[in-house]
Design a protein around this nucleic acid. Sequence first.
DNA 1: ACAGTGATTGCACGCGTGTGCAATCCTTGG
DNA 2: CCAAGGATTGCACACGCGTGCAATCACTGT
Lengths: 326, 326
Amino acid sequence: MRVTAHDVALAAGVSRSAVSRAFSPEASIESRKRAHILAVAESLGYRPNLIARGLTGRGSGLIAVVVGNVSSPYEAWFLDVLAEAIRAEGLLPLLLPVSPGQELEPALDHALAYQVDGAVIAAGSVSRKLAERCSAMGAPVVVVGRVIEDGADSVCCDNRAGMALVVERLVAAGRRRVAWIGGYADTFSNIERLEGLTTGLSAAGLKLVDSRRGNYSVEGGLAQALTLLTGPEPVDAIVCGNDAMAIGALSAAQRLGRRVPGELSVTGFDDIPAASWEAYSLTTVRNPVETTVREALALLSARIAGEDGPPQVVRLAPELKLRRTL
Amino acid sequence: MRVTAHDVALAAGVSRSAVSRAFSPEASIESRKRAHILAVAESLGYRPNLIARGLTGRGSGLIAVVVGNVSSPYEAWFLDVLAEAIRAEGLLPLLLPVSPGQELEPALDHALAYQVDGAVIAAGSVSRKLAERCSAMGAPVVVVGRVIEDGADSVCCDNRAGMALVVERLVAAGRRRVAWIGGYADTFSNIERLEGLTTGLSAAGLKLVDSRRGNYSVEGGLAQALTLLTGPEPVDAIVCGNDAMAIGALSAAQRLGRRVPGELSVTGFDDIPAASWEAYSLTTVRNPVETTVREALALLSARIAGEDGPPQVVRLAPELKLRRTL
DNA sequence: ACAGTGATTGCACGCGTGTGCAATCCTTGG
DNA sequence: CCAAGGATTGCACACGCGTGCAATCACTGT
């Protein structure tokens, strides 16, 4: 059935150990013999069983990747970069989709049962206890997009700084009646972004005119912007917690005939690919996804290599992408 | 370090076999004892090592998922649905991103070395030989989005039928000068969609006015539509090979001030989420992704369960989504 | 030619789990 | 009270691989 090292050993007339060593680059084995074994192995279609190899203790070569709705543009973008980077390290990503509201723990348990070497968590609510439990099981964890104080390594863009950039530009453009459409209320990124917005505004002597929740989706942004713009309170800028909602808000503005950015500014956060599509040309804050992934994997690799020490927090500076909606 | 069944056995004062049986629902074991063992296991934080379990032959519980650029909207959508469905079956998806142009084989080898129970291949060029090799290794393969004649199970929407729907509507709307912006030339879906378009047109006594390649990307669609619309040949309809390019084409039309659908029709294929965003309201062909995933997994499960027989081909009927661009 | 040295090699064990088989236990019927 | 039968249990082996250890080999220097 399945061809094993034993079969190769038989066919090549050597011991099974020799086969094993032929596939370990550093092992001591005569090079002529190794070549022969590799040739026989090739002809038999033999590949070392990585599952069995993982059993001997040297790590499974698997990385758990916890991510939310993969179909949301930001998550898809992030996952794309991350998966590519993991494979570039010779590892394999185990995909664990955890929709908002679902429990993270069962999914993580499932992955831990596969002896993953590490986990990148970009969704679900991860407590300090959970992170510690993973580490105790031998799987270092890097949390992305939020910071667990003293609990786990994390890398996350500086949301407040990003919003500060938006406010600066907003004020320079003479906007005075600013509204906010945020994501899920208790989300780390949502809290920080809102906080960055309000402190920036109050520094300019302004305060929010309105504040709503759009659940980070296009539909949510559209619905909230519609009721907002048809409400009693006049508004000359809508700051959104992410790009998807900003795209929804732009649709609302279009439907209501508001000129953007003439009478109304709209901004997003993340700079997903759609933000630069001409129909939107959304002014937004660029979330440095590539750097985030690089840093996260570097942290993870260090931990896997055994590096000890207190949890590290990497904060990445975002950048304002000026386009045509502000 | 890592807590094993042996540790639990010691702590519970039973044999290791008993621990193993406590975790197999059908195994013969006194229920009081099972409860006790499970309690001890829980208190020690023990979970059966699925890697080791996979070694005994009963499958690894892993499914390889080969997909292209995850960040492209259609692939992200598909992956989202698929990953969710795989987890719903109690399996775990192993993510293998294979960008267009990259080799599929090394990625698949990597996954096969993990003894995956099966593979869903939605990207990369898979030959009949490759599919057979996988099956020989004990990993059934389902190909999605293209058909390997007599080579592997596959499920794929009926691209020609989809295009027929577009043509029908196009002709009814009185369009006579139709251009085509396709994806990668040698792609299965691209060939079928183009074929469906041309046969439909010639049945109506028409033929393509122009034909281009936009690489299935927004940027490609934009660039091709720009040169197309500023070229010598007048055009009153652009049929695109997927939604992303259609979105690019709409941007081109907007930039050039063409009224859509007044002077120009634009259509896509797939019905990605962005197609229904108000800025586009793209008329397109809905690719039945949910059904595709369901059928693909059903096929795969049957094969994993040992079902024999000739390769099956499932063709799914698409549906025209009439919006505002045609 | 011979001892000494270092490179190869094979044996056997361990990784953590499932499971056939025979031994044991408890239950039940007479 | 005894025997028969079924339910439980533990032993031991298997899964496919890496690797320490001791044995073997080739080779070198004198």
